[in-house]
């Protein structure tokens, strides 16, 4: 009897023990810092509960930072999103299996790419004396003479495509597989033109997956810090850059907790994005087994 009870106890304890390291580690490493950011966003320098931080963040330069970040994330989700779908489709329908494998592997690498390496590569190609700039200048099309500036908001958006397009290719390739060849054949046998096939079958089937992919791209563009910071030396007004500035001590005295409020705002935006992603993915999965 004693032994049975003991074994039952062990059975209950063992899973808890086995999961404990992971649970404790993620709680300390992920839970506590996130909760700290959220709670400090609502506290004054003296530790009192307040909405003043959020109030400050909702106006002036911090508000512009958020607006810019959202605009940047929107641009770098829609444009690379569409380009990524075209690229994925071009690759998926090509005859070369090697090309498909190569692009799949390259996308995996490039989707996680960013920061200092990316910055240098683009300065070397499109900086004021970059390779491409010099080539274009030779045919009197120097982009810098036409208002292009790599170290600006749109320069950052252009560079972000380097990891956003591969991310879209990764996300959308399985969905393209859900587009059965038999549907196209059926549509053609019923007399549908290519345009009609895409309008009535292809696009409706793909749309939830494309939207889901764009939401992921939005999150990735909204959260990115390293590339924008190194490319513009922290001069572009974006929410993550402003957090960096606060952490580096570039903040008015008495507003040290502003950083947490910006962080909280970012968490809110990203949570909404991920909830939408979850909803869209549920719809998208209908066409994928």
């Amino acid at each position: 009897m004693e032994q049975i009870r003991k074994r039952g106890l062990v059975r209950g304890v063992r899973p808890a023990l086995a999961m404990a390291p992971f649970a404790i580690y993620t709680f300390i490493g992920l839970g506590i810092p996130t909760l700290a950011v959220i709670s400090l966003a609502f506290r004054s320098e003296q530790g009192k509960l307040t909405l003043a931080n959020l109030h400050t963040v909702a106006q002036g330069t911090y508000r512009i930072g958020f607006e810019n970040s959202i605009i940047l994330a929107t641009i770098t989700s829609i444009v690379p999103g569409i380009l990524g779908v075209f690229l994925a489709y071009a690759i998926a329908t090509s005859h070369s299996g090697m090309l498909r494998r190569l692009v799949a592997a390259a996308s995996g690498v490039l989707a996680n790419f960013g920061g200092i390496n990316l910055t240098f590569m683009f300065i070397a190609s499109l900086g004021s004396t970059g390779v491409l700039t010099v080539w274009l200048a030779a045919i009197h099309a120097n982009p810098w003479h036409y208002g292009f500036n790599l170290y600006s908001f749109y320069g950052v958006a252009f560079v972000y495509m380097y990891f956003q397009i591969p991310l879209m290719v990764l996300v959308i390739t399985p969905a393209l597989g859900g587009l059965r060849p038999s549907w196209r054949e059926a549509a053609e046998n019923l007399g549908a033109s290519s345009f009609k096939y895409w309008r009535t079958v292809g696009i409706p089937v793909l749309l939830p997956s494309v939207l889901g992919g764009m939401l992921l791209l939005f999150g990735s563009g909204f959260a990115a810090y390293a590339t924008a910071d190194t490319l513009t030396a922290g001069t572009v007004t974006l929410a993550p850059i402003q957090i960096g500035a606060v952490l580096n001590g570039n903040v008015i005295a008495g507003e040290e907790n502003i950083g947490y409020a910006i962080g909280f705002g970012m968490l809110v935006v990203l949570s909404i994005t991920m909830i939408l992603y979850g909803l869209v993915r549920k719809r998208a999965s209908r066409w994928l087994r």
């Binding site: 810092p33 996130t34 957090i243 949570s271």
Partner: peptide, 13 residues
């Protein structure tokens, strides 16, 4: 979902 910039903010605190 939680960006590194926000995570390090909390970690350093």
């Amino acid at each position: 979902v939680i960006p590194p910039i926000v995570l390090i903010l909390g970690v350093l605190h």
